[in-house]
């Protein structure tokens, strides 16, 4: 009886926060869905009639849409590849005993504490700027033509900037996972005649599989909605070369003041995110089972 009582009491006590959180999520979602079916443009005030899937059709047939989808997937894929591979590499290096480990670790992790707009502006103005940037200076010293990163390779540049921000996160998670590896396992492998590469491939990498999965899942959630870095560097351009889905939704609703189409884009982004999530869980979710 006691447990039944306490269970009921527990339910009643957590109910307010559950209701609050549910409302917090459901009201914006419901409003987005509602707006996505209305002709709702702030430049053309009117009675906002119900137009069915017109906004969706408009958003999907927009030539920028396809570019945005491709760019979104390239951004997520490229950054994941760089951060996971780089993170594993850095974790292996930082796991080695060396002088000044503490300071090096803090320095490796620090990019994660710089806010996205600031780091993107630093990269844009101090490194990638074709006139004043460090890379332009280096090219100049070497006698080469400075490369205008954000114009000539906008998407690759943004991938670079965002990878720089997320590499510390991947490194941190993978390093802690690496440190939890039983050293006797490595010694046993050494006795068994495994070379350094074999020890990495057969012992360390499988040990990291769960941490890698966590890194991929968490990063995907955040990378699908990259926005600040694009806004302060390329504004989605040139043309649509660096426009992703998030930026396209922003452009529709806040640059063209078309709330209806923007909402439709938002709903499509949610659906896309879920498709990606399903694929991810199918591919790597089994790593999370103990």
């Amino acid at each position: 009886m006691a447990t039944q009582h306490s269970r009921a009491a527990a339910r009643i006590m957590i109910a307010p926060s559950v209701v609050l959180l549910l409302a917090w999520m459901l009201i914006p979602l419901g409003m987005t869905l509602y707006f996505s079916f209305l002709r709702y443009n702030l430049l053309m005030p009117g009675n906002n009639p119900f137009v069915g899937f017109e906004n969706y059709a408009y958003f999907v047939t927009d030539p920028a849409f396809q570019a945005a989808i491709v760019n979104t997937l390239l951004l997520v894929g490229g950054i994941l590849l760089i951060t996971v591979v780089g993170g594993i590499g850095l974790a292996v290096l930082l796991d080695q005993p060396m002088w000044g480990t503490g300071i090096v670790r803090i320095m490796v992790i620090s990019p994660f504490f710089v806010m996205p707009t600031v780091s993107a502006l630093v990269w844009k103005n101090m490194f990638m700027n074709p006139v004043n940037g460090l890379f332009a200076y280096i090219a100049d010293v070497l006698g080469m033509q400075p490369f205008d990163f954000l114009t000539q390779a906008p998407l690759a540049s943004i991938i670079g900037i965002v990878s720089w921000q997320w590499l510390p996160f991947a490194t941190l998670i993978l390093l802690t996972a690496m440190q939890s590896l039983d050293s006797e396992q490595l010694e046993a492998a050494e006795m068994d005649g495994a070379s350094a590469w074999s020890r990495f491939y057969h012992i360390k990498l499988p040990h990291l599989s769960r941490a890698i999965t966590v890194v991929i899942l968490i990063q995907t959630i955040f990378l699908l909605s990259i926005f600040a870095e694009i806004l302060v560097t390329t504004n989605g351009g040139p043309g649509t070369a660096s426009t992703n889905l998030t930026y396209l939704v922003y452009a529709e609703s806040l640059l063209r003041f078309d709330v209806g189409t923007g909402s439709a884009g938002g709903v499509i982004a949610i659906i896309l995110a879920n498709i990606v999530a399903i694929f991810l869980m199918r591919m790597i979710g089994k790593n999370l089972d103990a």
């Binding site: 396992q185 010694e187 046993a188 492998a189 005649g193 495994a194 070379s195 012992i203 499988p206 040990h207």
Partner: peptide
């Protein structure tokens, strides 16, 4: 590995992601 000795550790140091067969095969595979 070149000394021709085999060791059994206190924690057993088995490779958790491999089956028993793969664990035992590991030194031969190497």
């Amino acid at each position: 590995a070149k000394r021709g000795l085999a060791m059994v550790f206190q924690s057993y140091a088995l490779y958790p992601h491999m089956t028993v067969r793969k664990n035992i095969t590991f030194p031969l595979k190497m």
